[in-house]
Design a protein around this nucleic acid. Structure first.
Length: 800
DNA sequence: CAGTGAGCGAGCTTCCGCTTGACTT
């Protein structure tokens, strides 16, 4: 029997540590926090000095039970949760819940999982730091107060089931404000001039840009005119050495950004894949804000760099974490074994691993040495000058393995330009000089990863919450992640060639978006509402400010109850006053008058989303839902009136009417009481009968392909092709087909057997939402279905 | 899944940060 029980937060970590500690230590995991504020009411007794009511979380009851029994058998309990505010609180909750006697309890910390670090920790135990615990309690209670007082305000004044919080509401604000910047953006254009030059002997060509742009076409034209007959020559050559340094090893946020930019992963995808790598022991912990590498890792990287590229390429570096509010409980994200440049696993896992491996390796490599050459070309008759710039990498250093990507996709990829040896004074002939109209760029919309970057800069949210926060604001309908088609615009070019200027009008596409975050009407409405009445909480500095208070509490120089009281006094007063004085808001906006009826046209948020309305509410108005991408804030009268053209008859097909309409899920074509969605690339206002028939036929084909098998004896049982591959549908529920089974060869009897062997994985279609959520566990596989779960299962079945 | 948008009233929703699975048609 082990005399020592060590409790860490993560089970994967427990496994590793057990190996380092030897037989006399049993290492278990708490699976994160084990207790939280009670969910009913506030979970905080405001009358009694904000006394928190903590309850063991449902999914932790078993964990706590097991730990309790192990504690009884142990002589010493080592609380080894993470070395940060939350970790300290976990240690404290554990000692409270497990009833740990301080004489047999020791608190230890380490922020790297190496044998030395852990044995060192065991040699230097301390007590739970109650000041740090109190700082966590203040954080927790503040978040609960803000979330549970603001959300009900929104239910009452805006719409039920909405939510507000210190983190999510500010994240939404970022997206809303960016959208408004884009709305307010005034596009301007100017003429950018570039030239291609060649010396008399024609041994090379130089592409150079003019040092100024022209606002108008006339000026550009005038300049090209002045270039005719000008005698160009090299007026200056300037060489400057430069260097580039590698980026720091990955934190959660930078990993999410680079995986998004380089691999196209969403933030939550990146985290799921990283979790797999972590559990397989391939990388260190993936939720971290630290760029720190352990000495062991730095040495391993050195070995790898030197053996692969030679000593010249190595440069040991230790990076400093700059992120606001970083707690640095863990190392940076790095491979556990630097010698593994690739791994076994899925393609996605391999790619993410290689990204991490390269980034880590590069962080321990030499700077790249470059040389920048700037060549100036001028003519005596011209005040303006052409500049050709080139950069040559003299020594590649870390660039051999890794180059960081940029968010700004418009930043032209500065390809390496090798400039020929050039003498000052050498005459040049202008082969071609062109002036091209270029537009100013609007601010970019946020992608998931650039939002995370911004949040980290502001100190809002933590590595463990970036991905869930994005899910929350999308699920609440505040934000929509989608693609948008771009627009076409014209631009002019003036080209001087062989002494003649020609003009050209061309078209280009701009503004197309892929997987970007757009605010919804409700997101804008809630942001405005909260900003009006709770400016302090919506302030980008709010988190940073309260963090300062938490730090003072952690130092023992401020009582947490004092801090909370001071905050709550004003906050609660604002909540009460807003509840009383503000009028419910639907974001209503009047657009004008309908020329047909003379009635007022307005838009607002209705029960099922944004709607347009003709006529005021006391004169039997007509309604139409807004289309995807349309906003209450920006829709025009003309666009709104178009919405009332639906449903519209397009004509007949196979003797039945073809209709185009707009439903809850967007525009659709209806034919013979069947519906087909109209893809985004088509405009429902202009769709033709031919196109509609095309869609109907495509849908029919897809429906046929959907059915793999139907059995003559049992028409109830169907083998279908779904989003996740083939499955069996029977009696409104769906069943899995085991891997390796050919769905085409299944017999009816085999299907029945599969149906019987699997508890229904689905959904009484009625109202049993809560029940459906908890139901379904494959009875056969998992070793012990808990009692609670099996009861839930029967309820779910009955609910049907 | 897809023509909805009244009004009443009961009962419910909700936060942020630690952790994993369970599960998706």
């Amino acid at each position: 029997m082990q005399e020592n029980l060590v409790i860490v937060e993560s089970p994967a970590k427990a496994k590793t540590i057990e190996k380092f500690l030897g037989e006399n230590f049993l290492v278990k995991s708490s699976y994160g926090h084990i207790r939280d504020l009670a969910k009913k009411n506030l979970g905080i007794d405001i009358e009694h000095n904000f006394l928190p009511e903590y309850i063991v979380s449902d999914d932790k009851v078993k964990v706590v039970q097991e730990l309790k029994s192990l504690v009884k058998k142990a002589k010493v309990v080592w609380l080894a949760s993470d070395e940060d505010r939350e970790g300290e609180a976990i240690a404290w909750h554990l000692s409270e819940v497990l009833g740990l006697d301080s004489s047999k309890t020791k608190r230890i910390v380490f922020h790297e999982i190496t044998k030395d670090a852990i044995q060192n920790a065991i040699k230097n135990p301390r007590n739970v730091d109650l000041n740090l615990v109190n700082a966590q309690q203040a954080r927790r209670i503040l978040d609960r107060l803000v979330g549970f007082e603001l959300s009900p305000l929104l239910w009452k004044k805006v719409k039920p089931s909405l939510s507000a919080g210190r983190v999510q509401s500010v994240a939404v604000r970022l997206i809303v404000e960016r959208e408004r910047e884009i709305m307010a953006f005034q596009q301007t254009s100017s003429f950018k001039v570039s030239g291609i030059f060649e010396p008399n002997a024609k041994e090379y060509q130089l592409k150079a840009e003019l040092d100024k742009r022209f606002d108008g076409k006339a000026q550009a034209q005038d300049f090209l005119q002045r270039c005719i007959g000008a005698s160009f020559s090299i007026s200056n050559v300037d060489k400057k050495p430069g260097k580039r340094s590698p980026a720091a090893p990955f934190t959660t946020s930078t990993l999410q950004q680079e995986a998004g930019r380089k691999l196209g992963y969403s933030v939550s995808q990146t985290m799921t894949i990283a979790q797999k790598l972590y559990e397989a022991g391939l990388i260190t912990y993936m939720r971290t804000d630290s760029v720190n590498l352990s000495d062991t890792a730095i040495k391993a990287a050195q070995k790898a760099v030197v053996s692969m590229f030679g000593a010249d390429y190595h440069n040991a570096r230790q990076y400093k974490t700059k992120a606001k509010g970083a707690q640095e409980a863990h190392e940076a994200i790095r491979p556990t074994y630097m010698e593994n440049s690739t791994i076994e696993g899925t393609n996605q896992e391999k790619k993410l691993y290689e990204l991490i491996w390269k980034r880590t390796l590069a962080s321990q490599m030499s700077d790249a040495i470059t040389e920048k050459t700037t060549i100036t070309i001028g003519a005596p008759s011209l005040a303006e000058k052409f500049i050709a710039a080139g950069e040559v990498v003299k020594f590649d250093g870390f660039l051999k393995v890794y180059k960081e990507s940029a968010d700004d996709e418009s930043a032209e990829d500065e390809a390496e330009v090798l400039l020929p040896p050039i003498k000052v004074g050498e005459a040049q002939n202008a082969i071609e000089i062109s002036a091209i109209q270029r537009y100013s760029q609007r601010p970019p919309r946020y992608a998931e990863s650039s939002l995370v970057k911004k949040m980290e800069e502001l100190g809002i949210g933590r590595p463990s919450t970036y991905a869930p926060t994005i899910s929350t604001i999308i699920n609440r309908g505040y934000v929509i992640k989608e693609d948008r088609a771009g627009y076409e615009r014209e631009f002019e070019s003036l080209i001087l060639k062989k002494g003649k200027i020609t003009e050209k009008l061309s078209k280009e596409n701009y503004g197309a978006e892929k997987s970007k975050l757009f605010p919804s009407d409700i997101g804008m409405l809630v942001t405005d509402f909260l900003s009006e009445y709770f400016g302090n909480i919506m302030n980008y500095d709010f988190t940073a400010k309260v963090e300062k208070d938490f730090d003072v509490i952690a130092e023992g120089k401020l009582k947490w109850e004092e801090m909370i009281r001071k905050f709550y006094q004003n906050f609660h007063k604002d909540v009460e006053q807003t509840m009383e004085n503000s009028t419910p808001t639907k974001g209503e906006r009047t657009l004008g008058v309908d020329p047909k009826t003379g009635k007022v046209v307005s838009v607002r948020i209705g029960r099922f989303g944004p709607i347009a309305q003709i006529g005021s509410s006391d004169e039997e108005p007509v309604y139409a839902g807004l289309l995807k991408g349309q906003l209450i804030e920006t829709i025009t009268l003309e666009e709104a009136l178009k919405l009332f053209d639906f449903p519209r008859n397009l004509g007949e097909f196979e003797g039945k009417v073809v209709q185009v309409g707009i439903g809850r899920f967007g525009p659709y074509v209806k034919h013979a009481s069947k519906y087909v969605s109209i893809p985004k690339t088509d405009s429902p206002g202009e769709i033709s009968l031919e196109r509609a028939v095309e869609l109907i036929e495509a849908k029919r084909k897809a429906d046929i392909e959907k059915v793999i098998q139907i059995f003559a004896g049992d028409p109830e049982i169907q083998v279908l092709n779904g989003r996740f591959g083939p499955y069996i549908a029977y009696d409104g529920a769906n069943y899995k087909i085991p891997k390796g089974t050919d769905p085409k060869l299944l017999t009816a009897d085999e299907c029945v057997a599969l149906i019987k062997s699997q508890a229904s994985t689905v959904k009484p279609k009625s109202k049993g939402k809560a029940a459906a959520k908890k139901s379904s566990e494959k009875a056969s596989t998992k070793k012990s279905a808990t009692k609670a779960k099996s009861t839930a299962k029967t309820t779910a079945k009955k609910a049907k």
